[in-house]
């Protein structure tokens, strides 16, 4: 009799993801979903996905999901968590979202001690729009909108 020792987490849907090869969002989604499964909280979780490559995360996480505007996920999560303090509320944000347009929302959610969880995925660029510089972009990288310019030198 075969024994299942490895399977897709319950907290992931069956939908094939749209992410670019090698971006690792798929792996990170899986890790988050495994944790949700391990904690047994799939029915008790609300996820918030803002703008960026993560915008379609509601297609992949098999939990109640909420789509926020660019950078505002921690504020939306604050609103949900204050209503539903016994639920697990998480945001899934890229670096353009969290560290640039949404820097105020994440800093102040932390300052207030909001009981939310944030998965911060930093690829050091704006991925969805084609690789523009982000506040997290490291020195000595070449990318649009300043091709050929060595950043930080």
């Amino acid at each position: 009799m075969a024994k299942i020792i490895f399977k897709k987490p319950e907290a992931l849907t069956d939908k094939q993801n749209h992410y670019c090869p090698g971006c690792t969002h798929g792996v990170i989604h899986r890790l988050v979903a495994e944790v949700i499964d391990d904690m047994g909280i799939r029915d008790n979780t609300v996820g918030v996905c803002p703008v960026g490559c993560s915008v379609f995360a509601y297609d992949y996480f098999n939990v109640d999901m909420f789509q926020a505007s660019h950078g505002r996920a921690p504020a939306v999560a604050t609103g949900i968590k204050r209503c539903l303090p016994d639920r697990m509320v998480f945001t899934y944000q890229g670096d353009g979202d969290l560290a640039s347009i949404g820097s105020a929302e994440i800093v102040h959610a932390a300052a207030r001690g909001e009981k939310i969880s944030t998965i911060f995925v930093n690829n050091a660029i704006y991925g969805m729009t084609g690789g523009q510089m982000a506040p997290t972009t490291l020195p000595v990288r070449r990318q649009p909108p300043a091709p050929g310019v060595e950043i930080g030198n």
């Binding site: 609300v46 918030v48 909420f66 926020a68 505007s69 505002r72 504020a75 939306v76 999560a77 604050t78 609103g79 949900i80 968590k81 204050r82 209503c83 539903l84 105020a104 929302e105 800093v107 102040h108 207030r112």
Partner: peptide, 23 residues
Amino acid sequence: SFVQAESEVSAINMCYGAAGAGV
């Protein structure tokens, strides 16, 4: 629950979350 937000931008998005949670 009352939260003084860091900005009106944040306040309206908190409302967005709370309304979505059905309150």
